[in-house]
Amino acid sequence: NQASVVANQLIPISTALTLVMMRSEVVTPVGIPAEDIPRLVSMTVNRAVPLGTTLMPDMVKGYA
């Protein structure tokens, strides 16, 4: 089972991601792979991401 990136807090729309905002967790459905966390830092989300939500590729500008 692959770990995915999960929001560690509410991430408001257009917020630049930082390490403290994300954690890795094995979830269903599978989202962005946890090993991509370093790549996600400073990318922005294009929607509000509630606490505990799995980050999907279409939620992060420039990721997909």
Rank of each mutant, 00 (worst) to 15 (best):
N1V: 15
N1P: 15
Q2K: 07
Q2T: 15
A3C: 09
A3W: 06
A3Q: 09
S4N: 02
V5P: 02
V5N: 03
V5S: 01
V6W: 02
V6Y: 00
V6G: 00
V6S: 01
A7S: 09
A7Q: 00
A7H: 01
N8A: 12
N8C: 05
N8R: 09
N8K: 09
Q9L: 09
Q9E: 12
Q9W: 06
Q9S: 08
Q9A: 13
L10W: 12
L10S: 12
L10M: 09
L10N: 15
L10E: 15
I11M: 03
I11D: 02
I11K: 01
I11T: 00
P12H: 08
P12E: 10
I13Q: 14
I13L: 10
I13W: 15
I13D: 14
S14P: 02
S14Y: 15
S14L: 12
T15D: 03
T15F: 06
T15L: 05
T15G: 04
T15R: 07
A16T: 08
A16Y: 07
L17M: 07
L17Q: 00
L17V: 02
T18N: 05
L19E: 10
V20Y: 15
V20A: 13
M21V: 03
M21R: 00
M21H: 10
M22V: 07
M22C: 03
R23Q: 05
R23F: 04
S24A: 14
S24E: 10
S24Q: 14
S24G: 09
E25K: 06
E25I: 05
E25C: 07
V26H: 12
V26T: 10
V27W: 03
V27S: 05
V27L: 06
V27F: 03
T28G: 06
T28H: 09
V30K: 07
V30F: 12
G31W: 03
G31F: 03
G31V: 02
G31Y: 02
I32S: 01
P33Q: 09
A34S: 13
E35M: 10
D36R: 08
D36E: 15
D36W: 08
I37N: 00
P38I: 13
R39H: 08
R39E: 07
V41D: 03
V41N: 03
V41S: 02
V41F: 04
S42N: 11
M43D: 02
M43S: 07
T44F: 12
T44K: 10
V45H: 00
V45P: 01
V45K: 00
V45D: 01
N46L: 12
R47T: 12
R47Y: 08
R47P: 02
R47M: 13
R47N: 08
A48E: 15
V49G: 01
P50E: 14
P50M: 10
L51W: 08
L51I: 15
L51T: 14
G52I: 03
G52T: 00
G52H: 14
G52L: 04
G52P: 00
T53A: 13
T53F: 11
T54D: 02
T54L: 04
L55S: 02
M56V: 08
M56I: 12
M56R: 12
P57A: 15
P57E: 07
P57S: 09
P57I: 06
D58R: 06
D58T: 10
D58C: 13
M59V: 08
V60H: 02
V60Q: 00
V60R: 00
K61A: 13
G62R: 06
G62I: 04
A64D: 13
